[in-house]
Structure formats: structure tokens, C-alpha cells
Design a protein around this nucleic acid. Structure first.
Lengths: 240, 240
DNA sequence: GCCATATTGTGCGCTAGCGTACATACTACG
DNA sequence: CGTAGTATGTACGCTAGCGCACAATATGGC
């Protein structure tokens, strides 16, 4: 395993704070490792911390009455978990689990809220992030309706790749299937095609992306929409 | 046509403002009629007004490169159009069109922003609404993945019904199909079943709901999730 | 090095929904 | 009152993805 990513600015939101804000928060930011599968928040549950991933990826997903599930958005080093704390309502019908093991900074909810209510750049950044998250969720809705499993797999792989430094994801087909809300066999088939095209290599819980451009050739428009929105978020934030 | 709904409190968000806030805004709130199909915002376009529907319903939807479309959320008298104004980012990849003709109060964007930045109850209400909107969009994503056209039609009818005072919607099957992102024939079939079960009556662009409980018997869990979230929104708002 | 277990591959038949084409029936408007 | 145009009904073959069953294979722990 690589050494833990201990720079605050490895999370883009923390990186976008004003120096004064970051100094105030620093003593309370706690670096923790999050193991795969860890449940951070159940449906209707209350978060006592907010999490700023540096290398971990968290999945926001909904679990149906019949037990099947599907992801509505992911949270990586571009974002944070726990927007409902400052948006109000305290909890959501959504679950949050660790989809890729790694590190997060966490911060006690009330502290974040206090800083948010000052109305400084942090507020602006967090609201802007929430807007980008809305775009991501919307695009998931559209993609679920209109695109093939293969296209969705490519979208998902690219988004996940963008949140990592590495070309390799630790991830079973079963897990990907439950994220996309499809059968595991559907992923086997789509991944098989990508492997034949030498775009990815698969080995028992590890996917290596050999040819990123290849993925982009198979992905639907949804990936670009989400990606551009995140780029815009950080462009805007810098301007401020 | 009924007489226009001219009470500010017919929009639940306006109704939830503090008296002082409402007094400040009142002189600037302009009641306007919105005809069916009116495009309020194109993808990437900038809104100069925010809209608080009283009897109109606005659809937030995405249009794919190939021309097909699907709705990610609706906005009726429970909400407002234009959250990106205070969330930041100014625009979204989403379109906003009038799905049911009716009335809205509109307000110049900068005025809303100014009030929002005061950090009073209005800010709290709008953020809380945005949280509920996120739930609605998330549930659309889940529903698109897992539920049948019939279930989705029921969800959509119930949500629309909740935003109206009437049991009759003015709505062609073609339009519903483009909302749900499915074929028109799919709606014909699903609506036919509901009609046989004497739950709705269909006549050329008009749907009358005969038996609301019947709809609830055919709907998926998604409707309840969204509905409860909106109820919670206004419960919370009253508490404050 | 071996084995239990988790993971992936494959092959059915089945269904929902798509795309297309065309027939029918309202209804608004002249 | 007739007609043009819009809205709805229906039919048919096709495909993606499902549900299920089971075979094959890697891997970590002993």
C-alpha cells in the first residue's frame, strides 16, 4: 500500500478554502483510513462527521425494498460526504458506503456547520459542490434510462479513475453490478468486450485500465457532462 | 379557466418565509401566467428570474444528443425554479419547460440572491428545499433503473396530482412519454391498463383520476420516498 | 502446496420495452 | 357539418437485459 495521502489539498474542496478557514479547521481535521465496504450512513441515519476523501471513494446509493440497489452518485477527492448537514434535514434516504478503500479527512458536523454559517468562501465552495453533485445525480438518472450497460460501465470506470492516481481499481464485478444496479452477468459481458478490445485487463477483483482513450470511445455523453461540471466548479472556485 | 391563484402562500416556499422577508419581496413578486411548453431555461442558459409556481408545473429535464429526453424532477407549488442562482454556477445542463400551464410568481435573480445572502429563514428554507429536490432526482434515477413503465407512470401521476388542486391533468400521452423518457406506445399501454381498472379515465389530452388509492396500489416505493421528504421539508420549516 | 471460498464465465429461456408502421377516432376550426 | 390535423390504439418482429443454473478458475489462508 502507498503511504497515506496526508496533504490537505489532496481533497479539492479543502484545497479551495481560504487560508484562514483552513487554519481554523486544521486542528479538527482527522485523517482516517476507510476500509472497503464500511457503511458511513444508513438510510435515514444521522452523520456525526463530514468526510473529505483524499484517496477513498464513497458511494451514495439507494437500497430498494426488494434488496437490490443502485448508486446515484460517487464522492471522491473532488467532494465531500455529508451535505445534508448544512443543507438541512439532517439525513437522507440514501446510503453511503466505502467503494474504494483509502483515506479521508473527517470533521465533526457541528464544526463544519459553524464555519458554514459564517458565510465565507467555504459556504460558497460547498454550495457550488452541491450544485455539481446535483448534476451528477441527474445524469445518473438520464443514463439509467437511455444507455447500455457497456456505456454505463465506461462512464463509471472513467469517473472512478478520475478520482484515483492509479490505473488500477480494486473492484469485483459483483460490486460494480450493485453500483450500476444491474446483474453481475451483465458486467461480466460488458467487461469481457472491453477486455477483448484491450481497453482493460481484468483479474479477480482488479481492473487495470490499459487504454483510457478506448474507454472514452465507448462512453456515452453523460461522462462529459459530469466531468465538465466538476471542472467548472473548480474554475469558478479559483476565480473567487 | 379558474381565476388565477393570487395568494402568495399558494406557493409553499413563499408561505414559509418570515413576515419581514415576504414584505421585502412582495413589491417585486410578479404574478405571471405560463403557457404549456414555454421554455424557461435551456441547457447552459442563464436564468434572470426565479419562479415560484402556484398552479403551474415546471419540468426539469435533460435532452440527449440524439434528441430524446427525460425528466429528472418536477417543480410545482412545493418549490421553485432557479436554485443554481444561489447554489452557484449560474446554469445547468438541464432544461426547464412548462409541463402544466398555470401561474407563477417570479422574482429577479439578483433580488433573491441578495435576500439569500442575508442568511435568514429564506436561506434555510431554500437550502432545505434543494435537499428535497436532490432526493427527488435521486429517486428518479433509481426508479428509471428498476421499475416498470406502469409503476413510473403512477409515480408521475401522483406527484403531478399532488401539485394540483384538481383531479384532471391536461396532458397528452406523447408528453408524458417524453417526460418519462419512454415510447409513447408504452404510455398508451400502461394507461390502458389503468383505465381498464377504472383508476383513470383518458380522453384526448385529458386524464381524470377516478381512484387515487388505485394509483397508490400500482405505484413503486419511490413515490412515498419523495413525498415523505417533501412533507418533512415543511415540517422542519415550521419548526424553525 | 492444497483446499475452501470467492470470483468469473457461459448458456439457457423469458420479458419489457423499443422501433416501425399503420389504423382509428377525436376535436377544433373553417 | 365536414375535414385536417392531432391524439390514441394496435400489431409485429427485435434486442437488451433479466433470472436462474451451473461450470470453471483464481487466491488467500492454512
Amino acid at each position: 500500500m502507498q503511504s497515506p495521502p496526508t496533504q490537505f489539498n489532496q481533497n479539492h474542496l479543502l484545497a479551495a478554502l481560504s487560508p484562514a478557514e483552513l487554519e481554523r479547521l486544521k486542528p479538527h481535521l482527522e485523517l482516517i483510513h476507510m476500509p472497503l465496504g464500511d457503511v458511513l450512513c444508513e438510510s435515514g441515519g444521522r452523520l456525526s462527521y463530514v468526510y473529505f476523501p483524499t484517496s477513498a471513494i464513497i458511494s451514495l446509493h439507494y437500497i430498494l425494498e426488494n434488496g437490490s440497489s443502485s448508486e446515484v452518485a460517487g464522492v471522491g477527492n473532488e467532494g465531500m460526504l455529508g451535505i445534508s448537514l448544512f443543507m438541512g434535514g439532517e439525513n437522507t434516504p440514501t446510503w453511503a458506503t466505502v467503494q474504494t478503500a483509502g483515506y479521508c479527512y473527517r470533521l465533526k458536523g457541528p464544526l463544519l456547520l459553524q464555519e458554514f454559517n459564517q458565510g465565507g468562501p467555504l459556504q460558497r465552495v460547498l454550495l457550488r459542490y452541491t450544485q455539481a453533485l446535483i448534476t451528477q445525480i441527474s445524469q445518473t438518472a438520464v443514463c439509467n434510462r437511455h444507455h447500455t450497460i457497456e456505456q454505463q460501465l465506461c462512464r463509471w470506470l472513467l469517473l472512478t479513475l478520475d478520482r484515483l492516481n492509479s490505473q488500477e481499481l480494486v473492484m469485483t464485478q459483483e460490486l460494480i453490478a450493485s453500483m450500476l444496479g444491474v446483474r453481475r452477468e451483465g458486467i461480466t459481458e460488458a467487461a469481457g468486450k472491453l477486455q477483448q478490445a484491450e481497453i482493460i485487463r481484468y483479474r479477480r477483483g482488479h481492473i487495470t485500465v490499459l487504454n483510457r482513450a478506448g474507454l472514452q470511445g465507448h462512453v456515452c455523453e453523460c461522462y462529459d457532462v459530469v466531468k465538465k461540471e466538476f471542472e467548472r466548479l473548480f474554475r469558478d472556485v479559483k476565480k473567487s
